Every structure is written in C-alpha cells, then in structure tokens.
Simulated scan of single mutants.
Amino acid sequence: MSLKELRQKAEKQELQAFYELMEVALECSEVVKGLSPTKRRAWLTEVLEEMLVIQASKCALCKTDIEFGSFEVDHIIPHSRGGGNERTNLQLLCKLCNRKKGSSVAPQDLLRYLESRYMNL
C-alpha cells in the first residue's frame, strides 16, 4: 500500500470515528435534555452588564467592540444540544458571530459539558 493510500485510509477512519463520536454525543444530549429541560429566559440587566465587563466589551469570538444592546447572548453549548442557562455556558457575541456559530459544537466539548451537567442534576 502506498503512502498516499495509507493517508487516505487514515483520513477515512478518522472521519468515521468523528461521526460515531458525534452520534453518541447527540444521543447523550437528548438524554440530558429529557432529564432536565432548559427554557429560554429574559436576561437580567445586571447579568448582562457583568458579562460585558468580564468580556471587556468585546465579542467573545472576533473581539470586536460591543456595547449594551448591540450583542446577543450565546449559549456555548446550544439549547438544542442540551446546553443550560448557567453563566459558564454563556458568552456575549456580536450578531454576525452568533449567526455564523449557529448550533455547532465539537463532540468532545459537548460530551464534557453534558457529563458535568448530568453530574450536577
């Protein structure tokens, strides 16, 4: 087998392992959401102001300046994946970054978060 063929085989196996891990992570997400569903809520002004100070008035992803009213509250692990409203799962993003991010999350980050959330139910 040539080096090129070995690389292609390894890449294919890596991609398959990624999809299998993501499938398991999404199954875990559904279980945690069933045990402890989260609801969207209105954010307290004090919480938003505190987060803005912590982030130095910068978008958490692109680091552009944001000011009160020009940002969106983002769930690092989205609600759709079982993410909760705890402050460690929140960040302020500019509208463009929040749209780009969508509900994407790495499977290992999702599993780590879900494990922590499950252990604290």
Results as ranks from 00 to 15, higher is better:
Q55Y: 12
C59T: 13
E46K: 06
R41I: 12
I66A: 08
Y19A: 01
K39F: 12
S70L: 07
G34H: 09
K63Y: 04
K33V: 05
I54C: 05
I66K: 07
I54V: 13
S70M: 02
E23L: 01
K58R: 15
E49M: 05
A60L: 01
V24R: 14
K12C: 03
T45G: 07
S29F: 06
E23M: 00
L35R: 05
V47R: 11
R41L: 03
R40L: 10
E11R: 12
C28G: 04
K12S: 14
P37Y: 01
E50Q: 10
H75G: 14
L44R: 13
V73G: 12
V32Y: 09
V47I: 10
Q13E: 15
L61N: 14
A56E: 14
A60D: 05
W43F: 14
C62S: 11
I54Y: 07
K58P: 01
V47L: 10
L26I: 11
C62Y: 06
V31E: 10
E50K: 08
D65I: 05
K63H: 14
D74N: 13
A60M: 06
P37D: 04
R41D: 04
E27V: 06
L61T: 11
E27C: 00
G34C: 04
C28A: 12
E23H: 09
T38W: 05
Q16K: 13
E20A: 13
Q55A: 04
L61E: 05
L26N: 15
E49A: 04
A25I: 05
A42W: 02
K33C: 01
C62R: 08
R40Y: 09
E20I: 03
S70D: 06
E46H: 07
L48H: 09
H75S: 11
H75T: 04
E23I: 01
S70K: 03
L48C: 12
E46T: 08
E30F: 01
V32P: 01
E72D: 10
Q13G: 01
I54H: 09
C28V: 03
T45F: 02
A56N: 15
C28M: 13
V32D: 08
A60E: 05
Q13S: 13
Q55I: 06
Y19W: 12
S70Y: 06
K58F: 02
T38P: 00
V47Q: 09
F68P: 01
S29P: 03
R40C: 05
L61S: 12
S36L: 05
L52E: 10
D65P: 00
E46P: 02
E11F: 00
A56D: 13
P37N: 10
E49P: 00
P37S: 04
E50Y: 06
E23G: 11
I54G: 02
K33T: 14
E72S: 11
L26E: 15
G69A: 01
L35N: 11
F71H: 15
M22G: 01
A42K: 11
E23W: 01
D65Q: 08
L44D: 14
G69S: 08
I66S: 07
